[in-house]
Design a protein around this nucleic acid. Structure first.
Lengths: 233, 233
DNA sequence: TGTACATCAGTGAACGCGCGTTCACTGATGTAC
DNA sequence: TGTACATCAGTGAACGCGCGTTCACTGATGTAC
């Protein structure tokens, strides 16, 4: 669909508002998203912004959706940079992209995975689909590896507490993942660890412990992949 | 040392201020720590609070130190509730206490492990010693298990990137851990995972995926312990 | 035991900032005939 | 091609809030002789 001149200008202004909001987040944290401060930076009055976002919360929602999508884009791009049959390489690339994006866009990362903004309630029907995109890439690769007989048939997941595995199987169905339990369990189990490392790195808890967080991160991924029989070339 | 009547009253007031600050954090997030709001709740003028905390930042620092200490206390207590020789049980109890405390005191947990408060800079010489207490419990148990020949001599840690292991060995020395590299590596590697799970649970990312976050958390700990040869009775 | 003085808790006004949202409005741009 | 009208971007004042910090002060409590 083509946009009229007016619509294009409108889109540009919306983007400019979000760009400045991101700058403020980066400088002052996610609670510093302020319509008045953005207006000041743009040389507009506050009220003008209400033409573009009906409220502060709607702006925050737009930023959250953008952030989840940008992160997922980065992961998808990393995935497609690797040969299709090299599952270990694909997973490594995707998880490195996850970390890289988190560090390069730490304010956005805090916005989507950190402390909630006081008083703000995300409309889950809007944010959740964007939120799961990145994770779908990971479990998708794992499922592909399994379908091609490259995933070690570990027995771990078979010992999950019965109601946990029942819930997960139901969730796989409900959210349309269309994959077996094993890659889903493996994906969640690995994801939470990498996520923890990134969070701790971002807030300066691990750098004084491991020295080089990126090397450590790579090392841990390599080990996790090994437990699934996925070996890097 | 005994305190005079005046000193006792003073301590009580300081505690009351922190208690109300924690209530506000729980309700409005860590950025809502406000001297004026606390004064309002106490029926005092703002300026009266300056007798107890010389600035907003000093109050935040006190809350951070208290939080790290409370978390470490909970972990130490969990540790001492188990038989000394049952290393797997001790580690399970300690990590469950970690999660339990995080969930029961989610605002404090966000304060110490979540997004930084804009404009606040922690005096690391004050916060870091408190921050490492809990982790010391974990690696302490692992080192004890190793000293008693109960830790499987995995070769994982021997393949750490050379400058990472060099850095960690130096850090062990610098921070006075007095333990070998293996339990340190194992402790960090496990810690980051449990931390990630808790963060994701707290912010509602994993509950819709795993259904019962506590069961899942237990399951993952059990598996991690197994990889180190530590089996729960 | 009584008194003078120092210490301390708390007040109230002020400074100089910040915020989201509503309302009635002006003036430019686009559109339909 | 020219004109009337609708649409839209942006203004400016106002409402009712919030914040940390400094300053000169009052009045009660504790202490030393």
């Amino acid at each position: 669909m083509t946009l009229s001149r007016r619509e294009r200008l409108r889109e540009n202004t919306r983007e400019e508002i979000k760009t400045i909001a991101r700058k403020h987040m980066q400088e002052q944290g996610t609670t510093a998203i302020s319509l008045r401060a953005i207006a000041r930076d743009m040389g507009l009055t506050v009220t003008a912004l209400y033409r573009y976002f009906p409220s502060h919360d709607e702006l925050v929602t737009a930023l959250i959706v953008d952030a989840f999508n940008a992160l997922a884009d980065a992961m998808e791009q990393a995935d497609s940079s690797q040969p299709r049959e090299e599952y270990a390489e694909r997973l490594m690339a995707v998880m490195l992209a996850y970390r890289e994006w988190a560090i390069q866009n730490s304010a956005d990362f805090q916005l989507i995975y950190g402390n909630p903004i006081p008083g703000y309630h995300a409309p889950r029907e809007i944010t959740v689909p964007a939120a799961t995109r990145g994770f779908r890439v990971v479990v998708g690769i794992l499922a592909e590896a399994m379908a091609n007989g490259k995933l070690r048939s570990s027995t771990d997941y078979q010992q999950l507490p019965p109601h946990v595995s029942a819930y997960m199987i139901e969730m796989i169905e409900r959210d349309g993942y269309n994959i077996p339990l094993q890659p889903m369990y493996f994906g969640v189990s690995g994801w939470v660890k990498m996520h923890g490392m990134i969070m701790l790195e971002l807030f300066q808890h691990t750098p004084p412990v491991v020295g080089d967080p990126e090397e450590f991160y790579r090392f841990e991924i390599t080990n996790i992949l090994k437990t699934a029989g996925l070996v890097l070339k």
